[in-house]
Computed example of a mutant assay.
Amino acid sequence: MSEAPSSPSSAAGPAPGANSTPGARIIAITSGKGGVGKTFVSANLAAALTRRGQRVLVLDADLGLANLDVVLNLYPKITLHDVFTGKANLDDAVITAPGGFSVLLAGSGMVEYSRLTPEVRNQFLSVIQTLAPRYDVILLDTGAGISDVVLFSVSLASEVLIVATPEPTSLTDAYAAIKVLAMQQKRQHVRLIVNQAARPGDGRAIASQLQQVLDRFVTTESGKPMRLMHLSDIPVDPSVREAVMRRQLLLLQMPGCPAALAISQLAGKVEEALLHRAP
């Protein structure tokens, strides 16, 4: 894999933790490109964490092209758009999804929120600060790529999970996104989830390949290479497509299938690595 071109300066975002809030551990789930299963992972991971006793909120941070409502087969009367425009209270916009976790849906086609204006920034931050004390973990289901809105959403998180598939275009875009997170947000590490893995061990091989490119081209603020931490593989599984087409959570409908078992294992890893805090 060759080095991807440098990111545009407009893709800057604040350093992680700059907008940290007390309460929930905030985890961004993002990707370099769309269509890699990011929202599928977010929703099913939330269900798996809820099953493990965590209080979970999934916030649809893809303000322009939101589809979390589609994945969960929800038809919300109130969305984040209504909160931002003052038409509804925040508490009324938070609803319970199948799987028992809370969701705050953005509503699709929010063109006015596809750019990061100071107003959008402040409104989004206010929502996070209000909700964080009520949960153990908030999963930010971000948009794909390195737009200002995506990077601002990611900057609110203490940890970043980047979802990629083994396809070359996905890996190239994942590398580009990781590079921006290192250079613009001064992150020292991100965690990789490889979706649609064809064989056991594919994810570790992919992480190793990406790490070699990062070692060569990307240096963090500390002077050390950006660390890419392989977190989990989700195998290719026809049950996934079936669940998505039915607009059902895989973890609820086919909990014994290979992909659902992998997501359950992923939840255990997330809980152990990211949610257990020192007293």
Rank of each mutant, 00 (worst) to 15 (best):
A174F: 03
L156S: 02
R55N: 04
G109V: 07
L249W: 07
A278R: 15
G23W: 04
L181R: 07
A273F: 11
R115M: 04
P5G: 08
F40I: 01
S102P: 02
G34R: 02
A88V: 13
V36K: 12
P22C: 06
R199E: 15
R247D: 02
Q253W: 10
V244E: 05
V236W: 00
S126Q: 01
A243H: 06
A97Q: 03
S147I: 12
G35W: 06
R241Y: 06
S155T: 15
I162W: 04
D233S: 15
P168G: 11
S158N: 11
P238M: 13
E272L: 09
T169C: 05
L252A: 09
A205F: 08
L57V: 10
L49E: 02
T117Y: 10
V56Q: 02
I193T: 07
V58M: 09
P76N: 15
T220D: 09
A106G: 02
A176W: 01
R216S: 13
L131Q: 11
R55S: 05
T219I: 10
V111H: 10
C257P: 08
A174E: 03
S9L: 14
R25W: 04
D82Q: 12
G34I: 08
S20F: 04
S10T: 08
L116N: 01
K87M: 03
L214W: 11
I206T: 06
Q188C: 06
L266P: 00
S155P: 01
A273E: 06
Q196I: 12
R227T: 11
